[in-house]
Simulated assay, not measured.
Amino acid sequence: MYSKHPCIFVSHGVEEDFRKTLGITNTKTIYNPIDSQKIKLLAQQELSIEIDEYILHVGSFKKQKAHDVLIKAYAKTNMSLPLILLGKGKLFEQTKDLVVSLGLDDKVKFVGFHDNPYPYIKNAKVMILASSFEGFGLVIAEALVLDTPVISTDCPSGPSELLPENNLVPVGDIDALAQKIQAAMQAPKDYSVPFNTKFLPTNIAAQYIELVS
Protein backbone atom coordinates (compact mmCIF):
# COMPACT_ATOMS: atom_id res chain seq x y z
CA MET A 1 0.00 0.00 0.00
CA TYR A 2 2.71 2.51 0.99
CA SER A 3 4.77 1.85 -2.14
CA LYS A 4 1.81 2.52 -4.47
CA HIS A 5 0.66 5.82 -3.00
CA PRO A 6 2.42 9.10 -2.17
CA CYS A 7 3.19 9.32 1.55
CA ILE A 8 3.20 12.69 3.30
CA PHE A 9 5.08 13.21 6.56
CA VAL A 10 4.97 15.89 9.27
CA SER A 11 8.77 16.22 9.44
CA HIS A 12 11.89 15.21 7.54
CA GLY A 13 12.96 13.04 10.45
CA VAL A 14 9.78 10.98 10.28
CA GLU A 15 10.10 10.77 6.50
CA GLU A 16 13.68 9.53 6.72
CA ASP A 17 12.77 6.93 9.34
CA PHE A 18 9.93 5.68 7.14
CA ARG A 19 12.16 5.48 4.06
CA LYS A 20 14.83 3.51 5.93
CA THR A 21 12.31 1.19 7.57
CA LEU A 22 10.23 0.29 4.50
CA GLY A 23 12.64 1.16 1.69
CA ILE A 24 10.20 3.35 -0.24
CA THR A 25 10.96 6.60 -2.04
CA ASN A 26 7.52 7.99 -2.92
CA THR A 27 7.58 10.37 0.04
CA LYS A 28 7.32 14.06 0.83
CA THR A 29 7.44 16.18 3.98
CA ILE A 30 4.71 18.77 4.41
CA TYR A 31 4.73 20.36 7.84
CA ASN A 32 1.65 20.91 9.97
CA PRO A 33 0.11 24.33 9.34
CA ILE A 34 0.38 26.83 12.19
CA ASP A 35 -2.44 29.38 12.35
CA SER A 36 -0.47 32.19 13.95
CA GLN A 37 -3.35 34.70 13.94
CA LYS A 38 -5.66 32.33 15.82
CA ILE A 39 -2.93 31.40 18.32
CA LYS A 40 -2.16 35.05 19.07
CA LEU A 41 -5.86 35.81 19.53
CA LEU A 42 -6.41 32.91 21.93
CA ALA A 43 -3.27 33.84 23.85
CA GLN A 44 -4.87 37.12 24.90
CA GLN A 45 -7.20 35.38 27.36
CA GLU A 46 -6.42 35.78 31.04
CA LEU A 47 -4.38 33.24 32.97
CA SER A 48 -6.04 31.22 35.71
CA ILE A 49 -2.91 31.26 37.90
CA GLU A 50 -1.38 34.10 39.87
CA ILE A 51 2.31 33.55 39.14
CA ASP A 52 4.15 36.36 37.41
CA GLU A 53 7.23 34.46 36.19
CA TYR A 54 7.59 30.76 35.49
CA ILE A 55 8.92 28.13 33.10
CA LEU A 56 6.48 25.77 31.45
CA HIS A 57 5.95 22.27 30.13
CA VAL A 58 2.91 21.47 27.99
CA GLY A 59 2.05 17.84 27.30
CA SER A 60 0.26 14.69 28.39
CA PHE A 61 1.64 12.74 31.32
CA LYS A 62 2.92 9.76 29.35
CA LYS A 63 6.25 8.03 28.83
CA GLN A 64 7.03 9.86 25.58
CA LYS A 65 7.06 13.27 27.30
CA ALA A 66 9.63 12.14 29.92
CA HIS A 67 8.36 14.22 32.82
CA ASP A 68 10.73 12.29 35.07
CA VAL A 69 13.73 13.56 33.12
CA LEU A 70 12.36 17.11 33.17
CA ILE A 71 11.72 17.15 36.92
CA LYS A 72 15.06 15.57 37.82
CA ALA A 73 16.81 18.11 35.61
CA TYR A 74 14.84 21.00 37.12
CA ALA A 75 15.81 19.78 40.61
CA LYS A 76 19.48 20.28 39.66
CA THR A 77 18.96 23.98 38.86
CA ASN A 78 18.68 26.80 41.38
CA MET A 79 14.92 26.73 40.70
CA SER A 80 14.80 30.52 40.55
CA LEU A 81 11.53 30.22 38.61
CA PRO A 82 8.70 27.79 39.39
CA LEU A 83 7.96 25.01 36.91
CA ILE A 84 4.35 24.84 35.66
CA LEU A 85 3.14 21.50 34.27
CA LEU A 86 0.13 21.76 31.98
CA GLY A 87 -1.67 18.57 30.97
CA LYS A 88 -3.18 15.31 32.14
CA GLY A 89 -2.49 11.62 31.56
CA LYS A 90 -1.97 8.18 33.06
CA LEU A 91 1.42 9.06 34.59
CA PHE A 92 0.05 12.09 36.45
CA GLU A 93 0.08 10.51 39.91
CA GLN A 94 3.48 8.94 39.32
CA THR A 95 4.86 12.33 38.33
CA LYS A 96 3.31 13.96 41.37
CA ASP A 97 4.90 11.31 43.61
CA LEU A 98 8.31 12.10 42.07
CA VAL A 99 7.85 15.80 42.78
CA VAL A 100 6.99 15.04 46.40
CA SER A 101 9.91 12.62 46.82
CA LEU A 102 12.34 15.30 45.60
CA GLY A 103 10.85 17.92 47.91
CA LEU A 104 9.71 20.14 45.06
CA ASP A 105 6.10 20.64 46.18
CA ASP A 106 6.54 24.41 46.47
CA LYS A 107 8.35 24.74 43.15
CA VAL A 108 6.48 22.47 40.70
CA LYS A 109 2.85 23.39 40.04
CA PHE A 110 0.28 21.14 38.35
CA VAL A 111 -2.44 23.15 36.60
CA GLY A 112 -4.24 20.35 34.76
CA PHE A 113 -5.48 20.24 31.18
CA HIS A 114 -6.67 23.43 29.44
CA ASP A 115 -8.45 23.65 26.10
CA ASN A 116 -6.57 26.88 25.50
CA PRO A 117 -2.93 26.54 26.58
CA TYR A 118 -1.77 29.64 24.71
CA PRO A 119 -2.01 32.19 27.55
CA TYR A 120 0.25 29.91 29.60
CA ILE A 121 2.71 29.62 26.72
CA LYS A 122 2.67 33.35 25.96
CA ASN A 123 3.44 34.34 29.56
CA ALA A 124 6.12 31.71 30.21
CA LYS A 125 9.72 32.87 30.42
CA VAL A 126 10.79 29.61 28.77
CA MET A 127 9.01 26.48 27.61
CA ILE A 128 10.81 23.16 28.15
CA LEU A 129 10.37 19.84 26.32
CA ALA A 130 12.12 16.68 27.54
CA SER A 131 10.48 14.24 25.12
CA SER A 132 12.14 10.97 24.12
CA PHE A 133 10.56 11.29 20.67
CA GLU A 134 8.34 13.63 18.67
CA GLY A 135 6.94 13.63 15.17
CA PHE A 136 6.95 17.36 14.57
CA GLY A 137 6.69 19.11 17.93
CA LEU A 138 3.62 21.24 17.29
CA VAL A 139 3.78 22.98 20.67
CA ILE A 140 7.28 24.24 19.82
CA ALA A 141 6.05 25.99 16.69
CA GLU A 142 3.10 27.42 18.63
CA ALA A 143 5.45 28.80 21.30
CA LEU A 144 7.59 30.46 18.64
CA VAL A 145 4.50 32.22 17.29
CA LEU A 146 4.11 33.77 20.76
CA ASP A 147 7.81 34.74 21.03
CA THR A 148 8.35 32.28 23.89
CA PRO A 149 11.86 30.79 24.07
CA VAL A 150 11.97 26.99 23.88
CA ILE A 151 14.46 24.42 25.16
CA SER A 152 14.02 20.87 23.89
CA THR A 153 15.63 17.48 23.75
CA ASP A 154 17.04 16.71 20.31
CA CYS A 155 14.61 13.96 19.33
CA PRO A 156 15.26 11.94 16.15
CA SER A 157 12.65 14.08 14.41
CA GLY A 158 10.92 17.37 15.02
CA PRO A 159 12.73 19.78 17.36
CA SER A 160 15.92 20.14 15.31
CA GLU A 161 13.78 21.24 12.34
CA LEU A 162 12.30 24.02 14.46
CA LEU A 163 15.13 25.06 16.79
CA PRO A 164 18.86 25.82 16.44
CA GLU A 165 21.51 23.67 18.11
CA ASN A 166 21.82 26.15 20.99
CA ASN A 167 18.28 25.28 22.12
CA LEU A 168 18.73 21.50 22.04
CA VAL A 169 20.14 18.88 24.43
CA PRO A 170 20.59 15.11 24.01
CA VAL A 171 17.57 12.94 24.79
CA GLY A 172 17.59 11.65 28.36
CA ASP A 173 20.62 13.69 29.45
CA ILE A 174 19.46 15.08 32.79
CA ASP A 175 22.64 17.05 33.51
CA ALA A 176 22.71 18.70 30.08
CA LEU A 177 19.04 19.61 30.36
CA ALA A 178 19.59 21.03 33.85
CA GLN A 179 22.41 23.23 32.60
CA LYS A 180 20.32 24.47 29.69
CA ILE A 181 17.29 25.19 31.89
CA GLN A 182 19.51 27.10 34.33
CA ALA A 183 20.99 29.18 31.52
CA ALA A 184 17.57 29.84 30.00
CA MET A 185 16.10 30.98 33.33
CA GLN A 186 18.95 33.46 33.70
CA ALA A 187 18.86 34.76 30.13
CA PRO A 188 15.70 33.63 28.31
CA LYS A 189 16.26 35.97 25.38
CA ASP A 190 19.38 33.99 24.47
CA TYR A 191 17.01 31.21 23.42
CA SER A 192 14.51 33.25 21.45
CA VAL A 193 13.87 31.93 17.94
CA PRO A 194 11.77 33.72 15.30
CA PHE A 195 8.72 31.92 13.95
CA ASN A 196 9.27 30.72 10.38
CA THR A 197 6.47 31.84 8.06
CA LYS A 198 6.87 28.68 5.97
CA PHE A 199 4.56 27.05 8.53
CA LEU A 200 1.68 29.43 7.85
CA PRO A 201 -1.50 27.74 6.51
CA THR A 202 -1.36 29.47 3.12
CA ASN A 203 2.17 28.22 2.50
CA ILE A 204 1.34 24.68 3.63
CA ALA A 205 -1.81 24.65 1.50
CA ALA A 206 0.24 25.68 -1.53
CA GLN A 207 2.41 22.59 -1.08
CA TYR A 208 -0.64 20.32 -1.06
CA ILE A 209 -2.01 22.04 -4.15
CA GLU A 210 1.33 21.57 -5.91
CA LEU A 211 1.38 17.91 -4.91
CA VAL A 212 -2.08 17.08 -6.29
CA SER A 213 -1.52 19.15 -9.42
Score class of each variant (00 low, 15 high):
113 F>R: 06
81 L>A: 08
93 E>I: 12
54 Y>N: 10
74 Y>R: 08
194 P>Y: 11
139 V>F: 02
3 S>E: 13
188 P>F: 08
10 V>R: 03
111 V>N: 01
16 E>V: 03
128 I>H: 02
93 E>W: 11
193 V>N: 09
98 L>A: 07
196 N>V: 04
201 P>S: 06
146 L>Y: 04
182 Q>M: 12
153 T>H: 00
46 E>W: 07
152 S>L: 00
143 A>M: 05
80 S>Y: 00
89 G>K: 11
177 L>K: 01
4 K>W: 08
94 Q>H: 13
13 G>C: 03
209 I>F: 13
150 V>M: 04
200 L>P: 00
38 K>W: 12
51 I>W: 07
179 Q>A: 13
91 L>P: 02
55 I>G: 05
183 A>L: 13
13 G>D: 00
104 L>S: 10
18 F>A: 03
87 G>F: 10
31 Y>T: 05
76 K>S: 13
70 L>H: 10
74 Y>P: 06
193 V>A: 09
213 S>C: 13
194 P>F: 10
155 C>S: 05
162 L>Y: 04
96 K>T: 05
56 L>K: 07
211 L>V: 11
139 V>Q: 04
156 P>C: 07
86 L>K: 03
15 E>V: 00
16 E>W: 06
197 T>A: 14
92 F>D: 10
78 N>F: 07
45 Q>P: 08
8 I>E: 08
170 P>N: 12
78 N>R: 12
63 K>I: 12
149 P>Y: 01
15 E>K: 12
133 F>I: 02
198 K>L: 14
27 T>K: 05
48 S>E: 15
12 H>F: 09
151 I>Q: 00
213 S>E: 15
186 Q>I: 12
41 L>V: 12
44 Q>F: 07
96 K>F: 10
135 G>W: 04
184 A>C: 14
30 I>P: 05
53 E>I: 01
123 N>D: 07
133 F>K: 02
187 A>L: 12
93 E>D: 14
116 N>T: 03
61 F>M: 07
3 S>G: 01
30 I>S: 06
136 F>M: 06
195 F>Y: 15
181 I>V: 11
178 A>T: 09
28 K>L: 14
127 M>T: 01
112 G>F: 03
153 T>Y: 01
41 L>R: 14
78 N>G: 07
132 S>F: 08
14 V>Y: 02
20 K>S: 07
180 K>R: 15
94 Q>N: 14
110 F>A: 03
83 L>N: 06
200 L>G: 00
53 E>F: 07
15 E>A: 04
66 A>N: 12
213 S>Q: 15
176 A>C: 08
163 L>F: 05
39 I>D: 05
